[in-house]
Amino acid sequence: MDDIYRQYILDHFREPHNHGTLEHPTLHASDTNPLCGDRIELDLNVSDDRVSEVRFSGRGCAISQATASMLTERIEGATLEELRALTPADIFEMLGVEVGPARQRCALLSLRVLHQGIQGPYTGRWSDDDEDDAIE
């Protein structure tokens, strides 16, 4: 079994990068995971169509908080177009570990918040579970 509690994930949880808030962010979004109450808030400053600064705050499990920390690192300097193109698969690849179905929502919370911030609620798929629900 692949270990989702690898040291670098625990490090991001214990000492998150880009943790905090921005004074007057260009974009702000927040959301919770109703299952476990995980919460992520995201502040972005955007200039010339690129992320110049990003901060996150929140509470929750190691997976949701570490993913948020890693995601903020990843999106610094990225264009809005690049942010829009991010998918759940990118998040799992970034984490570098297998995330079981029970914890995928934790891992994807920060991406959902990011997409809400830049383009309103994400309408794509959030986990493999949702794929099972698809009718077509």
């Binding site: 509690y5 476990c36 995980d38």
Partner: peptide, 8 residues
Amino acid sequence: IHAHDLAT
């Protein structure tokens, strides 16, 4: 440790 991490 968050309860969900514990459960996992």
